[in-house]
Write a protein that binds this DNA or RNA. Structure first.
Lengths: 70, 70
DNA sequence: TTAAAATGTAAATTATATGTTACAATTAGA
DNA sequence: TCTAATTGTAACATATAATTTACATTTTAA
């Protein structure tokens, strides 16, 4: 796999979107709090399935939440 | 993980975009031909990293290439 | 100030994305 | 029609996403 860095603004978007806690939001999306924590800390390269669920609940397109670091 | 089905139009987009072969396109993106084949056959749930690379080379947003099946 | 809630993270495990090698089936071009 | 290129896919190996359990640290609210 190509060595690129993917960034995201999931944490910011979660706060902006009704100030849900990580745990509440994780439950809503259908992943564990730990998975959400690692995604927000940008230590995971999540699957498109999770990203589409995040996108849906945050009401923001995937391309706005995730991008390739230059 | 939530039991949802993710669909994509990667194969169509690849053909439209200059009619590259699967192998040529896979090399461009930086994955193997087999991985590309499985993604196009919708048998994989690829990572956001691969999706962003696909999006870049196909010049179409991730949200246009991938969606959740209703 | 202090206790409860929220968050970060680590270790062990499970599930699965991706790679490698290989071959069969399909498609396209001569 | 024949052959080469393209594609589908299977088996096995590896890397890592995601879960589970658990605990320490930080933040929030009384």
């Amino acid at each position: 796999m190509k060595e690129i860095s993917v960034k995201n603004k999931v944490k910011l978007a979660r706060i902006e979107k009704g100030n849900l806690t990580q745990g509440e939001f994780a439950k809503l999306v259908g992943v564990t709090r730990q998975t959400m924590s690692l995604i927000e800390a940008q230590k995971y390269n999540p699957t498109i399935k999770v990203c589409l669920l995040l996108s849906k609940h945050l009401e923001r397109p995937v391309d706005e939440l995730f991008w390739v670091e230059e």
